[in-house]
Design a protein around this nucleic acid. Structure first.
Length: 604
RNA sequence: GGAACGGUGGCCGAGUGGAUUAGGCACUGGAUUGUCAAUUCAGACGACGCGAGUUCAAUUCUCGCCCGUUCCGCCA
């Protein structure tokens, strides 16, 4: 049934719903917001009024203000109202310690109903475990975002971005915008593409990152560039990946790696201070090779130990086929010690094996040092060998040892993932700890087995280590292609708590080195010209040495808050199949629009 | 491209080869002067994701598809 609405008129808010305290008692205030809940006691009615700042309890007393009280009976959940009244300190026993405003209430003299609301499709104040499915919440995103959780995280996000601007400005960087409609470049992720109306059959691409433009800025003498840039990648999604996301993009001239490290350490320290966390600079450093060897990951979570142990030395001469084969073929046998893991059940170990198999592991062997020794390897190796392996790994009484054998890449991937999984399950990750590090010396190239050729691990503009340059020349000009896999790049990632928050490199500024890279990638001079001609030209007009980094805003927030889902850190995210459930995108377009764009749809 | 898990009223959630198909929240009306996820009484609404198959009978079993989440591949 319809309710007659009041006009806001010239009435103005005096306070938000989150800021009144006992010291405000006696003050006449005007609050505006949404009805969170109404509690009706007949002549006495309470309303929790909500806005972005919090909740304030408003009391309507039929004796004090009968008109307002009657009006308050008509409002329902999510109605929008303005309340004028007096702040009153609550009596002992009536305070609500759960609310910052819980020591006061507003005794209403007047209520204006500014808008009504349909009954919401889901409960905004449901406890986390009873929260409506994300599918429903994404469809009604504007309601979901009213929840304090999003009000809080989105404002934190804004504060982070604000802090970044202040820091970069203070460091003398110039904010420069680069275009969104650009051209598709080969390699890297799939592009999102925009058809051109004026050029039939031609397309713009949305940037995967402003990479080339920021290097052009360096060639242009802008010296210190930054931008908070939207990036687009048409690849399958994950809990930490969205088709569009935001990066702090940075590039500066005459850059050394050490300067980049210092800049970003300062930035992350400032940003993390917003949540009261102190990051110790300089950050620890691990080379890519060492990170993989010790943690099985190029973004190790250093909040806990549990390093991978090489068990091959304790297995010399073993006849146990899986281990013997792995070692013989140049693979590895490695394990990780789970402190206090002897209690792990057979079922739990089976689950962990299933987990490891996703990463290509053949099997998961285990040893438990409980009251008595138990192990999946007891029959195959015998008690003595099992004990030797366990002691080699550093396992002690009460521990468990998890072992995987196989190709080095599989052992690293599966044990690295297992390390995180076990730490999470066994609660071995200390709370409120932040462990930042730099991973350095990434390989220049990565061999793609399916395509039988090398790809740039970072991107094709990444500079090799100076000392690897002679090797690089030999590999490319001397045809010793096999050497490419061993070349190291001036590339680096910043990692916090296992989250890759930033990645970058010193770039190539010399035309001759750039030529070598293209050649190594199998790009002919003509192909390179066709795709990057303008850039290769630019490189020949006095390019300063330069380098930079890009830091994912959402990734930073994940590390900062511990929130594991990127969708919870963006206002309007897409589903795992890249759909927007609120606006129902992507959508079909008008045949007339298709004509204009010279596009015909082919049904398959 | 592959895999796992899930889809039951507006929301959460139990359940079953067959019967009037739990319960809670939300909703509507009443009672109610200190609640804060108020309480209480009454009421109304109304669902088994879609399609095919098996069966006398399918929300339940089978297959395919769609949607959501997570993971592998992919993401320079």
């Amino acid at each position: 049934m319809p309710i007659n609405l009041d006009h806001l008129g010239e009435l103005e808010r005096t306070h938000s719903c989150g800021e009144l305290r006992a010291s405000d008692a006696g003050r006449e205030v005007v609050l505006m917001g949404w009805i969170a809940v109404r509690r009706d006691f007949g002549p006495l009615t309470f309303i929790d009024l909500r806005d972005r700042d919090g909740l304030t309890q408003v009391v309507f007393d039929a004796e004090d203000a009968s008109a307002a009280h009657a009006r308050a009976k008509e409002v329902r959940g999510e109605y929008v109202v303005a309340v004028r009244g007096e702040v009153a300190a609550r009596d002992e026993g009536q305070r609500n310690p759960k609310l910052p405003t819980g020591d006061v209430e507003v005794r209403a003299r007047e209520i204006l109903v500014l808008n009504e609301a349909r009954t919401p499709p889901f409960q905004l104040d449901a406890p986390t475990e009873k929260l409506a499915a994300e599918e429903v919440r994404l469809k009604y995103r504007y309601l979901d975002l009213r929840r304090p959780f999003f009000q809080k995280t989105l404002r934190l996000r804004a504060r982070v971005v604000g802090e970044i601007h202040r820091y970069m400005d203070g460091e003398g960087f110039t904010e420069i915008e680069t275009p969104i409609l650009i051209k598709s470049t080969p390699e890297g992720a799939r592009d999102y593409v925009v058809p051109s109306r004026l050029y039939p059959g031609r397309f713009y691409a949305l940037p995967q990152s402003p990479q080339i433009f920021k290097q052009i800025c360096m060639i242009a003498g802008l010296d210190k560039y930054y931008q908070i840039a939207r990036c687009f990648r048409d690849e399958d999604l994950r809990a930490d990946r969205q088709p569009e996301f935001t990066q702090l993009d940075v590039e500066f001239s005459f850059a050394t790696r050490e300067q980049v490290y210092r800049l970003i350490e300062g930035l992350l320290a400032r940003v993390f201070r917003l949540v009261g966390a102190e990051l110790q600079a300089p950050f620890q450093r691990l080379t890519y090779a060492e990170a993989l060897r010790r943690y099985g990951s190029d973004k190790p979570d250093l909040r806990f130990g549990m390093e991978l142990q090489d068990l091959a030395p304790a297995l010399e001469g073993t006849t146990f086929a899986p281990f013997a084969a792995a070692i013989e073929k140049g693979g590895e046998v490695k394990g990780l010690v789970v402190r206090g893991g002897a209690h792990l059940s057979r079922k739990a170990l089976d689950e962990l094996q299933e987990f490891a198999k996703r990463y290509g592991a053949g099997a998961l062997a285990w040893v438990k040092l409980g009251d008595e020794l138990s192990s999946s390897l007891l029959k195959a190796l015998g008690e003595e060998a099992v004990t030797r392996v366990a002691s080699r790994a550093g396992a002690e009484k009460g521990d468990a040892l998890l072992i995987i054998a196989g190709r080095a890449s599989v052992v690293a991937a599966s044990l690295g993932a297992l390390r995180n999984e076990v730490a999470r399950r066994e609660k071995l990750i200390p709370p409120n700890v932040f462990a930042p590090l730099w991973v350095t010396e990434f390989p220049m190239f990565e061999f793609n087995e399916t395509e039988g050729r090398f790809y740039a691990m970072h991107h094709p503009f990444t500079s090799p280590l100076d000392e690897d340059l002679p090797l690089f020349e030999r590999a490319v000009e001397g045809g010793e292609t096999g050497l490419l896999g061993g070349l190291r790049a001036k590339a680096y990632d910043a990692v916090v708590n296992g989250v890759e928050v930033a990645g970058g490199s010193i770039r190539i500024h010399r035309r001759d080195v750039q030529r070598l890279v293209f050649k190594a990638l199998g790009l002919t001079e003509e192909k390179a010209r066709e795709r990057f001609g303008f850039f290769l030209d630019a490189l020949e007009y006095g390019t300063p040495p330069h380098g930079g980094i890009a830091a994912g805003i959402e990734r930073m927030l994940m590390a900062l808050t511990g929130i594991e889902n990127i969708r919870d850190l963006m206002a309007f995210p897409k589903t795992a199949s890249a759909a927007d459930l609120m606006i129902d995108a992507p959508g079909a377009i008008d045949p007339h629009q298709l004509d204009e764009l010279h596009i015909r749809i082919v049904e398959d």
